[in-house]
Simulated scan of single mutants.
Amino acid sequence: MEIEFPTSGLGSVPGDGEGGIEMTGSMQLIREFCDQLVEPEKITRTRIFFPEANEVKFARKSAFEGASLKLDYLTKPSFFEDFGFVEKVKMTDRVKPEDELFLVAYPYFNVNEMIVVEELYKDAVVNTDRKLIIFNGELDRIRSGYYPSFFYPKLAALTKTLFPKMETVYYIHNFKGMKGGTLFRCYPGPWKVLRRLGNRYVTLHQQETMPSLKEVALNILPSA
């Protein structure tokens, strides 16, 4: 499952806030999400994967201080961290038999993170009753071809392997400008393109499948 919305404010777009601040905001929202929606008896069966080990240390001292939720990581620093290289973590070594829910927190800082997420899905979710939720993973970067497939073939392959198996349960993406608007979905409803008029939103377009951001920006919003 996918949950995606801007953390700098519901009217903001990716990049409006500084990266570290947006991640910290997502961390706090994940804690609130778990407090409200994870049943008390399943708290210790919920494992939250942060992008890397240092983020787990920060979480334990801030938003998740005192929490019984299991905190884990997708990658850990390596000797070449300053050059963008991290050491991937073998998911079968991290998952425990009693785990029921995996929540992956903002896996977009390093390209290896989403590749590890797919490994988690294959190794620990497929053919089980476990659930996997990706929270603010900025998956649109991969969907839109932001990472050229020639240089990132494994990342590009996710659009054909992992993504078709995922359900987007809550999604907000804003478009700024004179003809701006919002692409919105709340499961099980359809995908909607909205525009704010005063204190309310009106629906300009809706469909059952997710339109590309390019289609919304260049075709749907300008023609409405």
Rank of each mutant, 00 (worst) to 15 (best):
K176S: 11
L204F: 04
S68Q: 08
K154F: 01
D72S: 15
G198D: 10
E118K: 13
L101G: 02
E118Y: 13
G19V: 02
V126E: 11
R45Q: 15
D140H: 07
P107D: 02
A224R: 02
F175T: 05
G19Q: 06
E81K: 15
G11F: 04
P222H: 03
L74Q: 02
S62R: 03
M178W: 07
L71N: 05
R185N: 03
D99F: 08
K214T: 08
G15V: 09
E167V: 09
I220R: 07
G25Y: 00
R185A: 10
D93R: 11
R185K: 09
V116M: 03
F80Y: 05
A59Y: 12
L218I: 03
T92S: 13
L162W: 00
L69S: 07
N136S: 05
Y170R: 02
P51W: 08
V111P: 10
E167K: 10
T44V: 12
N127G: 08
L155V: 13
A157R: 04
T168C: 06
K76Y: 10
N112V: 10
E22L: 07
A156E: 00
P153E: 02
E65A: 12
D129T: 11
T7H: 11
N54Q: 14
T75A: 04
G15M: 04
I48W: 05
A67Y: 13
F79W: 13
Q207S: 11
P153M: 00
K96E: 12
S78T: 12
N174T: 00
V38F: 01
G177D: 06
Q206G: 02
V169R: 13
G189K: 12
S223A: 10
C34N: 12
A156F: 09
A124R: 07
P107E: 00
R94M: 12
D123N: 11
E98Y: 06
M1S: 06
S62P: 00
E39M: 10
F151C: 05
F151S: 10
F79N: 12
T46F: 14
P148L: 00
Y170D: 08
P6Y: 08
I115P: 05
V13L: 03
G25W: 00
E18H: 12
K61N: 12
K165H: 07
L120I: 00
M23D: 13
G177P: 04
I21N: 01
R130A: 11
N219C: 01
I43W: 15
N219R: 02
D82R: 14
A105R: 10
A156W: 01
D35T: 07
F102P: 01
L194D: 14
A67I: 03
T203R: 09
M91I: 14
E81I: 12
R185C: 09
I142L: 03
Q28T: 08
R130Y: 08
R141Q: 10
I220V: 02
P97V: 03
K57G: 11
A156Q: 00
F58I: 15
P222T: 02
R195Q: 15
E52L: 14
L194M: 12
S62L: 02
L132T: 08
G145D: 05
L194F: 14
T128Q: 10
E18V: 14
V89N: 04
E87T: 14
K76A: 05
M114W: 09
E41K: 06
G20I: 01
T203P: 09
A63F: 15
D129V: 06
S212F: 06
L218T: 10
D123W: 08
